[in-house]
């Protein structure tokens, strides 16, 4: 199962848990699995097919470019981060 790290500002939705395990081959599946246990989380992370405005998702250290279609490995570490751009 992948490990999703929950940022402090979303822990109100996970009963304070800072990381939760979830199964799924894509980010969409992982979020769906999470949503079943922690309702409201998916809506905060995703919007439509993409990541919610202002946020980014890092899977194993790489900021995913594929939104919810991003592949997830069984041992993946998933982080929800603020979006970054650059100059």
């Amino acid at each position: 199962m992948a490990t999703v790290f929950i940022p402090p500002q979303m822990r109100d939705l996970t009963g304070g848990a800072d990381r939760v395990a979830a199964a799924g081959a894509t980010l969409r599946e992982v979020l769906r699995a999470l949503e079943a246990v922690h309702p409201g989380l998916a809506a905060r992370v995703a919007l439509g097919e993409g990541i919610a405005p202002g946020l980014a998702v890092s899977i194993d250290g790489a900021i995913t470019a594929r939104g919810l279609l991003a592949p997830v490995q069984p041992e993946s570490e998933i982080h929800i981060l603020p979006a970054i751009g650059g100059g």
């Binding site: 940022p7 402090p8 500002q9 979303m10 109100d12 905060r44 992370v45 919610a52 202002g54 946020l55 929800i80 603020p82």
Partner: peptide, 21 residues
């Protein structure tokens, strides 16, 4: 104020509050 997508109730000049730990 948006805290990782959760919005405050009152309009504010603080558009975003981020917190890492």
């Amino acid at each position: 104020t948006s805290e990782m997508g959760k919005l405050g109730k009152q309009p504010s000049n603080i558009a975003v509050h981020l917190h890492f730990e």
